[in-house]
Simulated assay, not measured.
Amino acid sequence: MKALSHPLRRRILHRLRVHGPATSTTIGEVLGANTGTTSYHLRQLEKHGFIEEIPERSAGRERWWRRAETPRDVRMPRPDTVAPEDQPVIDELLRVRHAEDMELFSRLPEEYRRDHAWALLSRGFAHMTEEGLAEFFEAYIRLLQEHSHDREDAPPGARPVHIRLFTLPADTD
């Protein structure tokens, strides 16, 4: 989780996920970072298994990187499984991801008008048991995996899309 708490690392991961393999130079140019900084963060992401080098494309000092095979569903650890000294890292990651999601959410009205076929939304409300909510969540994840493709094997016309699901109890507000 600590590796993901750095904003440039998250931007690098996003860039590789959406646009595919790249070098530290090309990533640095696009993200406005120098090659040394980009290389350092790429090595950190590699160390923690988030990305991998593409040896067949790399030559000399030019190293090509791609996202490592990762699940389409990234979950936060349960709070009761996090050591107290690691809780600030989780809190910061939640804060940063919330800010990123709010930026996405702010784009929704414009995207909805511009490209309704791709900017879909729904709001829901239900009474559920804890077990029923857990089953609903797992069914959602199965649907996500069933209808998703990796960038490399996506069919023609496939586009990257942001997908978010969150649930909150409604009786605490």
Rank of each mutant, 00 (worst) to 15 (best):
L93V: 11
S24Q: 04
I54A: 01
R63Y: 02
S39N: 14
A170E: 04
D173S: 05
Y112E: 06
E46K: 05
T37P: 02
A170M: 08
E103H: 07
D80V: 07
D80N: 14
L93W: 03
R164W: 01
E69K: 00
E131M: 02
L168T: 08
D86V: 02
V96W: 01
P71D: 15
L104A: 11
V18Y: 02
T26Y: 05
E92G: 05
T35D: 14
A117I: 05
Q87S: 06
P109G: 10
A22V: 05
A170P: 02
D86S: 13
L45H: 07
G60C: 14
L93M: 13
A83M: 06
S39P: 03
L42N: 09
L120F: 03
I51K: 06
H41R: 01
V96K: 03
S58H: 01
R107W: 06
P109H: 03
E131W: 04
M1I: 06
E62N: 12
L93H: 01
T38I: 00
H41P: 07
F50N: 01
Q145T: 06
E135C: 03
H98N: 09
V30A: 15
T172K: 04
P169T: 04
H98K: 12
R114T: 12
T23I: 03
H48E: 14
A139T: 09
L31Y: 10
E56R: 08
A139V: 10
T81C: 02
R97G: 10
D73G: 09
G132V: 03
L8V: 12
H127I: 06
G49L: 09
N34W: 08
A158W: 04
G60F: 13
V18I: 12
E110D: 14
L108P: 00
R10G: 08
L144I: 09
E85F: 00
L8M: 14
E146M: 12
R75H: 07
A99E: 13
L16S: 04
D115V: 09
A59K: 15
F125S: 11
E130P: 04
R164M: 10
I51A: 06
T35Y: 10
R151H: 09
S122E: 08
L45F: 07
V96L: 14
E111K: 15
E111A: 15
K2P: 00
